[in-house]
Design a protein around this nucleic acid. Structure first.
Lengths: 196, 196, 196, 196
DNA sequence: AATGAATGAGGTTTCATTCAT
DNA sequence: TATGAATGAAACCTCATTCAT
């Protein structure tokens, strides 16, 4: 309202929508609040966007597209191990560069088509863990256990993004968390090998 | 709908409510849906419950009360280390016994009085990590980093509960996760000590 | 609730209803509150009363019947002047003896059949004023003006009843108010005679 | 419904609301009825008004503001007696100019913030009577008696407004009523002085 | 004589969405 | 491009009333 009117109404609506989605999630976000925050009426919103979900699409599509591109590029190489590690750090940087959208994806997916997209990313993580177990000679890991590990990792990422860090700090954090995960994982493998 | 109608309306409403809360969270749960799922009109709901929040209360109060009792008992002992470990396993068992409510607490806390209760449990976890760092000679841990660790742990617990496990399986899982956390933690400590 | 249960449920409901009607008026009175105040369930109420309006009827009918009887007796005599004055004081005493019902009548008439009954009592007052004017040689009094006088008188009565007076105090008050009305009336007549 | 549709929805809603408030009072007025009377859906109402109370505010605020301004101006002068009389006639004219709102204030005050505003006006009247008694050498007037006088006066004003008068007629009426009150008051004083 | 359970209409309010201009 | 007006469904909740027991 009091902001200098840049004339870029679409941008204003877009930003207000991101803020609202971040604060309240998708379903509880109010188009009215978004519009009043953006200093326009609902009509304006519906000129630029088809409906509520369309706004979410416009926010998340670049993230999803970029993610798919990144994964595709990653799978062009062939050294599995190396791919995995470089993928990890690439993913972190990518998410950092798009963290606003990433957090919105995680917060707003419920009840939208992004629920399944999120699921597929999440399954990618589970698959990563499964491979890692296999590489370490453990083949019979319970799926629910993979769920636990993947969800923890995802939560770790999410909270990394949520914090108000610079890229350097994020990378430092990621190193720490990775150290944690790595040590954790190998400790677990030792235990499991001893047991079975 | 598909449930066998036992004639126990209150129970039907209660169960339908738990299902709806789990699926949509507190705010987005619809009393109409709950009632139609339970096969009654909205008026019936208000015969058994004071209002929407009262339903959530009836679901969560036993969990909260039990939790407080457990914590109180825990603090009657005096060997800090032992207390910590027994507390951990006691907590897991307790949450398992009340897992439905526990999951609802985590999903439905936003915008209710349970937000702060959850927060206090969560802060307990953060404090646990902080103490652990201190015991290992690391005193200057960033609060955001503690957030990451605590949220991961919480997420781990939550997913343990979500899975369809028996108590034995849960305890086995908990052991594994603990192995993971322990190894992870000490790996991290090594890295941090090396760094500073 | 905490009252000693006299076993007289009907009486309990009746009293609770009177209290509720006095406090909230007819439409805003809640049968639920009445029942919970009386320590019974709605079913009990509907055993003794046909519906909400029936309760009001049971409260007001004795008042109305008595009023009609009183008026009928009054008109058996024939000295108009004397009748008027004795009627006035009889009315005051009668209303005092039934003041609870009288106040309920005035507060609860809106939207019930008692609206017209009240209207007829009220018109009786207007007629009294009209006669008084005529007796004093003034025949062309505006109807709206009679409305003003009658409504003031009614309001005076109502507030006499509302106060927590004994019969003696009421009679003293009535004397004062009557002195006020009498002097007022004759002052007005003087003015009107001077004017026309 | 029968009104000519001027296309001015806000006005239609406003008028329908005034009518409904007058007929049923604030609490029993139904926004649904108001809307259907105005020929719009409930949503339309909420485009023009914030909520139910906001409609009442929009009706009564001009009245209240004007009243406060009038009282403030009145107290700038300094001849108490004169002030009192000019105030009386000014008040009558003011209420006449805003009679719709004035009647709504009196009918709708219960259960709203206007209850205390009304109360303060009413207490002003009581205080006026008290002063008048004191000026006439009577100092120990019962508060309940002042209530009776003030409520009668208020009722008189109200019914003056309710009638379909022109300003001239109102002023004529006011003179008459004032004659009535004056004579009545001094008659009462005589009686009271004789008594004590 | 009274309970406990249930109904269904109606209350105020918010929402995403539409559309003439 | 964007406004202002309006819709209609759905939200939570309260009410008088009914009825089997």
């Amino acid at each position: 309202m009091l902001d200098f009117d840049t004339g870029d109404t679409k941008e204003n609506i877009f930003n207000a929508a991101k803020k609202e989605f971040l604060e309240k999630g998708y379903k509880d976000a109010s188009l009215r609040h978004i519009c009043s925050e953006a200093g326009v009426t609902t009509g304006a919103l519906y000129f630029f966007f088809k409906n509520k979900e369309d706004i979410l699409d416009k926010i998340l599509e670049p993230l999803i597209d970029g993610y798919r591109k990144m994964v595709r590029n990653l799978f062009k190489g062939n050294d599995a191990e190396k791919k995995s590690w470089s993928g990890e750090s690439q993913l972190i940087e990518y998410l950092y560069q798009n963290r606003e959208a990433a957090i919105i994806l995680i917060k707003c997916r419920h009840g939208t088509k992004y629920e399944e997209i999120f699921e597929s990313i999440y399954n990618g993580m589970k698959y990563g863990f499964k491979s890692l177990f296999r590489t370490n000679g453990i083949n019979d890991v319970d799926d629910s256990f993979l769920d636990i590990l993947a969800s923890m990792k995802m939560e770790g990422y999410l909270n990394m993004l949520k914090g108000d860090y610079t890229l350097e700090e994020i990378q430092d954090l990621a190193e720490k968390i990775t150290a944690y995960w790595d040590s954790g994982f190998f400790g677990l493998v030792e235990k499991m090998k001893g047991k079975f």
